[in-house]
């Protein structure tokens, strides 16, 4: 019998946390109770930013972390935040193919830090929020203060002429309410769950990047598992990944519908507007390829081959 400890920075009733519960339940069932997972949710043990190091050092067995948290050490890990690289759920699903070039390159890169990727957790596309008018043209970003989540999203804002201000998730609501920044940035479902629509009345469906979480396990620990255990873990991970991918698309569409149902003005981009945004954001893709080196280039090429 073996117990694995997992740290999650959100609550177990949040889709990302619930998905770890799905993994734990599946693993217990398929291993006939041989393997169990103890889940420590709500960042009781580690904040997201601490997870890469905590898992690599063996302080904790398994951790959930936003892929961008690796982007300091591995600039190419910011690939999910590169603007307009993932145009649709289909492209993401193809990129996630375990035998595909993108997935292999990405997971091997994360593995080089002593953390093996178990599965990906799609949380959905990221949108821009604003007050008074939708942001259909990139020129509307000129000179605006814009919430950024970190370096990769900051590069995007730079590229389109805005000024990035890094604001954490918990201060987001007040920053929008009080106008600390002019433009917000958030996943579609979070606009609903964090009540951001109360303070930002326009959601522009730019879908400019993805909030992609990855679940990582300590490399040495995984190597020490028996072949049977490895098979169980891998299978449970794939079950969890698939179930969330299906839910996420539905959840995001439901949130968008709910928002447009009298809670906010939801504006999709026309193909021409999208093209203008992509052109304006091009310098950020160049920055990514420059910082990410060969790996960055490989990842971008692998994605573009899937369009």
């Amino acid at each position: 019998e073996r117990t694995l400890r997992a740290t999650v920075q959100v609550a177990v009733n949040h889709p990302i946390g619930a998905n770890v519960v799905t993994f734990a339940d599946t693993l217990r069932d398929i291993s006939g109770g041989e393997m169990t997972v103890e889940i420590y949710d709500s960042a009781q043990l580690f904040k997201g930013s601490e997870v890469p190091k905590a898992v690599a050092s063996g302080a904790i067995d398994i951790g959930v972390v936003l892929a961008d948290e690796y982007s300091g050490t591995l600039p190419a890990a910011g690939v999910f935040s590169v603007p307009f690289l993932f145009p649709s759920y289909e492209v993401l699903a193809r990129a996630a193919d375990p035998d595909g070039a993108f997935r292999k390159t990405f997971d091997d890169m994360i593995a080089s830090t002593g953390t093996k990727v178990l599965w990906w957790q799609d949380y959905g596309p990221v949108q821009l929020l604003s007050k008074g008018e939708a942001l259909v043209e990139p020129s509307q970003m000129q000179g605006k203060l814009v919430r950024a989540m970190g370096k990769p999203s900051g590069d995007f804002i730079d590229a389109v002429g805005g000024t990035p201000v890094v604001i954490g998730g918990s201060e987001q609501f007040m920053a929008y309410q009080r106008g600390t920044v002019d433009v917000g940035m958030s996943g579609t479902t979070a606009v609903e769950s964090r009540k951001l629509y109360e303070v930002m009345d326009h959601v522009t469906m730019t879908n400019h990047s993805l909030a992609e979480f990855i679940v990582v396990i300590n490399d040495a620990l995984f190597d020490a598992l028996s072949d049977e255990e490895k098979a169980w873990v891998t299978e449970a991970a794939m079950v969890a990944e698939q179930s969330l991918r299906e839910q996420t698309e539905a959840n995001n569409e439901a949130s968008a519908d709910w928002l447009s149902d009298g809670h906010a003005t939801v504006t999709p981009l026309t193909p021409e507007q999208l093209a203008a945004w992509q052109d304006a954001a091009a310098p950020a893709v160049e920055v990514f390829v420059r910082d990410g080196g060969d790996l960055g280039k490989q990842l971008v090429d692998a994605i573009q081959a899937l369009y």
Binding site: F46, K47, S49, E50, K53, A54, S57, G58, A59, I60, G168
Partner: peptide, 18 residues
């Protein structure tokens, strides 16, 4: 429990802009 918990905590506990 892994001793690695201690340096991870010492390094992480104050690394917060707030």
């Amino acid at each position: 429990l892994p001793l690695a918990l201690i340096p991870t905590n010492l390094f992480g506990s104050l690394n917060d802009f707030v």
